[in-house]
Design a protein around this nucleic acid. Structure first.
Lengths: 302, 302
DNA sequence: CTGAAAGCGCTTACAG
DNA sequence: CTGAAAGCGCTTACAG
């Protein structure tokens, strides 16, 4: 096992004090440009990287950010959204030598517990908060603890207020003079997606189109249509909100609203880092979705 | 923002030295049972938790384990395997106050870079290594760095030697006197799964059954069969290795080989923790899969 | 059984 | 522009 270089090692080699080396390494004023260059070169040669614990202890910051996913075990991992989000966050953090600490818990109570523990242990400097609800108790806890947080709209919760979308849906339906426009609430699981579809397709009048709030429900709904002998897209158009490979591989491939989720995660990470640097960051917009037309949508028969 | 309690605070309240409090808190010999109880009670009252940085610095261990996923951005998140695995790992770690640090990178080179960085920064005490190949360079790097690791078989790489399965497949085929038993290599993406299926179904004799090494390929393959007018399961039986909601929601629902991935992750975490405690842990077996028969398999017509 | 002290590897005022 | 020193909150020999 190789040996790790410390600031003391660099100081000894450079004939400087540890303090001077620290200033040089951190780009702080107080050392001449020539010494700084010399120190930087030595540090690179010796493969020096700051000991995260030592820096965290002395600088009172963990150098890590936290993300808790509250999800029942059964639905875990069915939404590609989260892996992509994490990847986006993570790319940005790595460039700033900040770690992402992840915890998966069954519900919001456990999530709050995780925040309290992280705070008490000084594990993380800030939090990515997902699936925000109205009057969310998690927000209160984070404020009480003084843990900076950035809110990320998850699948199905695009931005801060889920209700906004149902309202917009209603308004557009009215503007287009649709005969009817129904919103059905689900828990985003394929089971409930299938069930809601079955109910809708059994009613009269039968809808000519359904928009699903995630990819798994859309795929489940497509399957239900098949079973019931409803042809997609001739008798029923289907749109999935948030694309994924799933939507491409089913038959017919689904028309989707697609967002660049990795970019979204990256922007959220930049936001949180800026917040920690003391910059005041306003609310930020969700990624704007793009419509990708595939095989599941068609003009209804006249 | 509430104030964090430190060992010094407890010591002051208890009228003890910091050292004594530390011994009491860590269950070390050297304090009377009554003082220990008193200290424990005080600590709980004051909501004390060890400062992770301080403990890491003095004890020379990070209190965190790392998992790097090397995946091209495009296929990220399509396999539910990883979220479940992380969740299993994570549950076990949380109980031992150990954090899971995650990094997503595009390839193995970047993965190795991440290990070096983590090592230099003392970010993690050990590594969960996934998708092991034969003569994997990552193993060498981890050994060189002295970073303990536990190998986890990922989707498609069940255990240490992918090749073992093709061989077993051939042997069983011979034993059952099958006319032919072909193995096609893919990159586990739905695209290649679809492509391989198309090729197989266009050949003569057309196979009566296909076993896919993950869920997405199986779903893609089912779609291809539909397109080509091959009825599943009458003309073609399909089995997916590793269950997921996907397999349940497509039409017909797929017969699968299912493993309890969360439990598998939990066991891997126990292994790695034991390794760090200096116990010698042997190789451990992959989770044994269970066959769940659904609608995609049938006896071929005589 | 307990206390006083050094040390982990950094950062950061404070003197020179 | 640079050096010596204290401190972050723990752990851990070492004396008593």
């Amino acid at each position: 096992m190789t040996k790790r270089a410390t600031i003391a090692d660099i100081a000894a080699r450079a004939g400087l004090s540890k303090g001077a080396v620290s200033y040089a390494l951190n780009g702080l004023p107080g050392v001449s440009e020539s010494t700084r260059q010399r120190v930087l070169k030595l540090a690179a040669e010796m493969g020096w990287r700051p000991n995260s614990a030592a820096r965290a202890l002395s600088a009172s910051r963990a150098g890590a950010l936290g993300l808790v996913m509250a999800r029942p075990a059964s639905t875990l991992g069915v939404e590609p959204f989260f892996m992509k989000l994490m990847s986006g966050i993570e790319n940005t953090l790595a460039a700033r030598s900040t770690a992402l600490v992840l915890q998966v818990v069954p519900d919001h109570d456990a999530e709050v517990e995780a925040y309290r523990r992280w705070w008490a242990e000084r594990r993380v400097d800030g939090i990515f908060l997902i699936d925000l609800r109205i009057e969310d108790k998690r927000v209160l806890v984070l404020e009480e603890l003084g843990l900076p947080a950035v809110v990320i709209g998850g699948p199905g919760h695009h931005g801060r207020l889920p209700g906004v979308r149902s309202q917009a849906f209603g308004e557009v339906a009215a503007r287009l003079a649709l005969a009817s426009a129904v919103t059905v609430a689900t828990d985003y699981s394929p089971e409930q997606g299938a069930q809601a579809t079955r109910r809708l397709l059994s009613g009269t009048p039968r809808p000519s189109a359904v928009i699903y709030d995630n990819d798994v429900m859309a795929v489940a709904g497509t399957s239900v249509a098949h079973e019931m002998g409803v042809d997609v897209p001739r008798d029923l158009s289907i749109v999935a909100w948030d694309d994924s490979v799933l939507c491409e591989i089913v038959h017919p491939p689904l028309t989707v609203l697609s967002r660049d989720i990795m970019a979204y995660g990256a922007r959220a990470a930049e936001r949180l880092l800026a917040l920690l640097d003391g910059e005041s960051v306003g609310d930020f917009e969700d990624a704007t979705p793009r419509l990708i037309t595939r095989g599941s949508t068609a003009r209804p028969p006249a």
